[in-house]
Simulated scan of single mutants.
Amino acid sequence: MVSISFLKIRTNKMKHFFCALCLLLLTGAALQAAPAAGARYAIRGKLQGMDTGWVYISYHYQETDHIDSTRIAAGNFFISAHLPEPLMVTMKLSGNPQQVSFLAGYDTITVQAAASRLFDAAVSGSPEQDAWMKYREEFMAKVPRRNGRDDTAFVKALENQSEAYVRQYSNWLGAAIVIYDRFISYKGTEKAKVLYEVLDPAVKQSYYGRRIAYYFDAGIRTALGAVAPVFRLPDAAGVMRALQEFRGKYLLVDFWASWCPPCRKENPELVKAYLKYKTKGFDILGVSLDSNKPQWLAAVAKDGLLWTQLCDSNGYDGGVTALYGIKAVPQNFLLDKNGKIIAKNLRGEQLQLTLQAILGQ
């Protein structure tokens, strides 16, 4: 399987830089229970090497992209805009591919940076950001440099320090972020459940706490015998299609992506099953996590995928992947004619053997 992490951490002589391109687009009641009013954030900054231009502050929230902007004058800027609740925001500069992310609340934040090293900006004035930075500066500094992909000592140290941070900073948003990234994103669901109970009630009610709970509930939503959660996504022509349209046949809902080698390796098996059983009441619905549409469609054509293809272009940050608890691909769900889940993650010959038992030779 191919998975993705909310944080990307790399080491260099015991200095750990991690960039949180965050804010997963999660849907459902658990995430809709956010504070309705919110308030305004305020960011004041000084930039070296950039006297004029634009500053952009962006974040994702409840399936919507939010972008605020302000002008830079003599290297200084100030921006204030609505923020529904404390969130991780991303700051970019015009004409500059770099970015920096930090936790913003309703305090006035100060950002000082060289435009050429925006990712290394000094951010102050946000208690939540200060607590978040402790993860990098104190806890991750205790993790040894990774020595190869199968370095179990590195993995163990990373998990231990992540757990220690959550327990010590359980009343800060960073603890919920670490639970999701370090444990849920790496299939450590049982540990995540234990640590979730350590969180302060206010953190549980935050955006990051709610998305943990929403992920836990995915196991119930997609349990065998449950009616598969309904969704709507665009097909290759941009037409919105609903899962309910495909009822009346046995349907394999297949989550995949063009950039996922295990998915591409599995596709020939799906093609065999589709060609053998498509006239016997079987269909496949592909759900791609691709953000690059030409790349997605090229893979569909190259692999000969003849069934309907939809795309959740926000990938692991998408509403449908959150709805189904998808943290790695490939994954699939076999539904009966009424939309009930009767099997999961059928691979290779397993799919054909299952269909043979249901539909005959």
Rank of each mutant, 00 (worst) to 15 (best):
L21A: 14
D235C: 13
M133N: 07
N96C: 11
D51K: 15
R145A: 08
E63N: 04
Q309S: 09
D317H: 09
K142V: 03
V100H: 02
Y169H: 14
Y196G: 05
A343Y: 01
A74R: 12
I109W: 04
Q99W: 06
V320G: 13
I67M: 05
L47D: 10
K327L: 04
L224W: 07
L334D: 08
L355A: 10
Q62G: 00
R182F: 07
T27F: 06
R182D: 01
D336L: 09
N12Q: 13
K276F: 00
R40S: 14
N12A: 14
F139H: 07
G248P: 11
A36W: 01
W296A: 07
L351I: 12
Q295Y: 00
A30W: 00
Q129R: 12
Q32V: 08
D290A: 00
G281I: 11
G75V: 05
A113N: 08
Y59G: 09
V227K: 14
V100R: 14
E85T: 14
D51S: 14
I326C: 07
F139N: 00
A202E: 14
R71K: 10
L118M: 11
Q161N: 15
Q98D: 11
G248Q: 12
V227F: 00
E163L: 00
T70N: 02
M1R: 02
M133K: 05
Y186V: 06
G281T: 00
F102W: 12
D254C: 04
T152Q: 05
Y208I: 03
G304Y: 08
P330E: 09
S124M: 09
S288K: 03
L26K: 12
L306R: 13
N96R: 03
Q295C: 00
L305D: 10
E245S: 04
D303T: 11
E163H: 08
F78G: 05
L83R: 10
A121Q: 05
A114R: 11
S170L: 06
L297C: 08
T308F: 10
Y316M: 04
A141T: 01
E269Q: 08
L251W: 00
F6D: 15
G148D: 05
L243E: 07
W296G: 09
S185D: 15
P97E: 02
P268C: 03
D120M: 12
L224N: 02
Q244E: 13
I57N: 06
V178Q: 03
L346W: 04
